[in-house]
Simulated scan of single mutants.
Amino acid sequence: MHAPQDLVRPLATVEPDGTVEGYASLFGEIDQARDMVMPGAFAQTLRTRGLRRIPMLFQHDPAEPIGIWLDLTEDIRGLKARGKLIPDVARAREVLALVREGAVDGLSIGFRTVKGRIDPATRIRKLDVIDLWEISIVTFPLLSGARVRAVKTRAPTCRGRPAHPRTGHSPRR
C-alpha cells in the first residue's frame, strides 16, 4: 500500500553552514484556513520592513526567537526564505536537531491582511497584500507545501581548520 503523495515529506538534507531554507508561502495554493496568497502579496512589506524586522520564531511564539532571516524573496512559486538558526540559543539547537531528523519541517507565516477578497463562489480568501510580521518553523503548517527544504550545519573542524566534507580531515599546510 502506498502513502498518498501529500503525506510523504522529503527529509531535510544536512549540509555545512547552519542555514535553513524553504518556502514560507506558496502562491495560488489553498491552506487549511481557506486562504490563498496571490503573487506579489509580500512585495510591499519586504520593501518597507526589511529582514531584521521579520523575526524567525518557533511555533509562532514571540518568546521563542530562534534565528534570523538572511534572504526573503518572492519568486514565481512563492515566498522563498533562507535564514540561520542561532547556535547560542538553546531552542535553536533543539530545532536544528528536530529539522535534521525530519521531526519538524514546517514553515508558517504570521501576518496581517492589508488587501484581500473573498471569492463568493468558493469562499476562498485571496490575499493580495500582506503585512508580514514573522516566519516560524512549526510542526503543523496550515499550508502543507510550506516546508524547510534544506538544513546546513557548521562544517566540522580538525585542529582548528575546516575539515574536508567527506573525509573529515583538515587540509595540510
Rank of each mutant, 00 (worst) to 15 (best):
K84C: 07
T48M: 09
Q32K: 11
P39M: 03
G40P: 00
Q5L: 13
E21Y: 09
E64T: 09
I109D: 01
R149T: 15
A24P: 02
A155W: 10
P10C: 07
L127C: 02
L79Q: 03
V14D: 15
W133G: 13
Y23G: 00
D6T: 11
S170Y: 06
E134L: 04
I68F: 10
K126Q: 13
L72W: 00
V151N: 08
K152A: 15
R173A: 13
R123K: 12
R34A: 09
V129W: 00
H2D: 14
L11H: 11
A12Y: 00
S136C: 04
T19N: 10
P156G: 11
T153W: 13
R47G: 04
G110C: 08
P156T: 12
K80A: 11
A92L: 10
A24V: 02
G50I: 05
D17P: 07
R52H: 13
G22C: 09
D6F: 14
K152Y: 10
L72E: 01
F27Y: 01
L142I: 13
G50C: 04
R161V: 12
P87K: 10
A150L: 13
D131V: 06
P62R: 04
R91C: 06
E29R: 13
L11W: 11
A24S: 03
P120Y: 01
A3K: 14
D119I: 07
M36F: 04
V148Y: 03
R93G: 07
D71I: 10
L51I: 04
L96G: 14
R147W: 03
G67N: 01
V95I: 12
E29D: 12
A146S: 07
R147A: 09
F58R: 05
Q44E: 14
V95R: 02
A24I: 03
L72S: 04
V14W: 02
V95C: 08
H169K: 15
V99T: 05
A163G: 09
K152W: 07
I86V: 15
L11S: 11
P120E: 00
I68W: 08
T48K: 05
V8I: 14
R161C: 08
R77K: 15
R49D: 07
L79R: 00
E21A: 06
E15Y: 10
K80M: 12
R161Y: 09
P141M: 05
A97C: 07
L96I: 07
V20Q: 02
S108E: 01
M36R: 09
S136Y: 02
T167R: 11
G116D: 09
L107V: 07
R100A: 15
E74I: 06
A90K: 15
E94F: 08
L98S: 08
P165A: 11
M56C: 10
D71P: 07
V104I: 15
S170C: 15
G102R: 05
R82A: 09
T167G: 06
D128S: 12
R112H: 11
L57Q: 02
F140D: 12
I68M: 11
P55Y: 04
R147F: 06
R147H: 11
V138Y: 05
H164A: 07
S144C: 04
Y23A: 00
W133Y: 15
P62H: 03
E134P: 03
P171L: 14
L46N: 05
R77Q: 14
W69R: 01
T153E: 15
G102H: 08
R166V: 15
A90G: 09
I66T: 06
P162W: 02
G28C: 01
M1A: 14
A33I: 05
R154S: 14
D131S: 10
P165T: 06
R172E: 12
T13H: 08
